[in-house]
């Protein structure tokens, strides 16, 4: 394996992430996946939204675009449809992907446009200082839920499934080898792929909910997850399944448009 620094814009570091943040592990996993696939830097576009997760884009030496809160997939759709030969990866936070950007998430999935959506789910709005997100479990505390949130959380995998995504997986920052393997498959997959990565925010989520240090939170991922298909629903209880939930071939959006152009376009 070659050095990962070749993919980094080191002169724009230090990065903004807090000590113990899981997002650096996601960045590392993503670069290792890209490296293992042997992709050219010039063929990769990173389009991000707004939030802690979305700063990932600035540190990598690809074509990079830092957009608006919730709209990363909409911008990415324009880039991809405009230039379908590019590999487009869209790192988002949980709020970015499923609160303000929820509509774009389901419609990108419905179209099956070839984007790789990475949902870096730390169950909290970190950039603004620790408010609850649509991924915060009921009863958990946040700066806007001092008595525990009464909201119910989304399940990324269920939403992506219902919306028609053709590749759906979940992993965590503890399971880095699995993360790299999943990201490799997601990037290669032709169609809309969703990778939810459970990531720890010791600074806000951890402190508000007495979840301990970053290491404690990663151990929690280890102890409260299981490999998809190894437990019945009854055995799993509150534990989350990890792995690839859906991986299927269906016509991709830009390919479908190409067939229209071939049918009606001037020779």
């Amino acid at each position: 394996m070659s050095s990962m620094t070749q993919y980094l814009r080191t002169r724009f570091m230090p990065h903004i992430w807090c000590p113990g943040c899981g997002h650096g592990i996601v960045l590392s996993g993503l670069l290792r996946a890209i490296d293992a696939l042997g992709l050219e830097k010039n063929d990769i576009v990173i389009v991000s939204g707004i939030g802690c997760s979305s700063r990932l884009q600035g540190y990598v030496d690809f074509h990079t675009m830092h957009t608006l809160h919730g709209r990363a997939l909409a911008f990415a759709t324009g880039v991809k449809f405009g230039r379908p030969e590019l590999k487009i990866i869209v790192p988002m936070g949980d709020g970015d992907a499923l609160a303000i950007g929820g509509n774009h998430f389901i419609h990108a999935a419905r179209r099956n446009i070839d984007l790789t959506a990475i949902v870096m789910n730390n169950n909290i709005y970190g950039m603004t200082g620790g408010q609850f997100s649509p991924m915060t479990d009921t009863g958990k505390k946040a700066t806007t839920a001092p008595d525990g949130t009464i909201d119910r959380p989304f399940d990324t995998v269920s939403i992506a499934t219902a919306a028609g995504a053709t590749f759906i997986a979940r992993t965590t920052t503890y399971h880095v080898h699995q993360m790299i393997q999943i990201l490799k498959k997601a990037i290669v997959h032709r169609g809309f792929s969703v990778v939810e990565i459970l990531s720890q925010c010791p600074t806000y989520y951890g402190r508000k909910n007495n979840a301990g240090s970053a290491v404690d939170m990663m151990n929690w991922f280890k102890d409260n997850t299981y490999k998809l298909g190894t437990k019945t629903a009854e055995e799993a209880g509150e534990m989350k399944a990890l792995g690839i939930f859906i991986e299927k071939d269906e016509p991709e959006y830009c390919d479908r448009y190409k067939t229209i152009i071939q049918k009606v376009g001037s020779p």
């Binding site: 675009m65 957009t67 997939l73 911008f75 759709t77 324009g78 449809f81």
Partner: peptide, 11 residues
């Protein structure tokens, strides 16, 4: 999203 998409495409 329409506005975002034309910005992405223009780029």
């Amino acid at each position: 999203s329409s506005m975002c998409a034309i910005i992405g495409a223009s780029l």
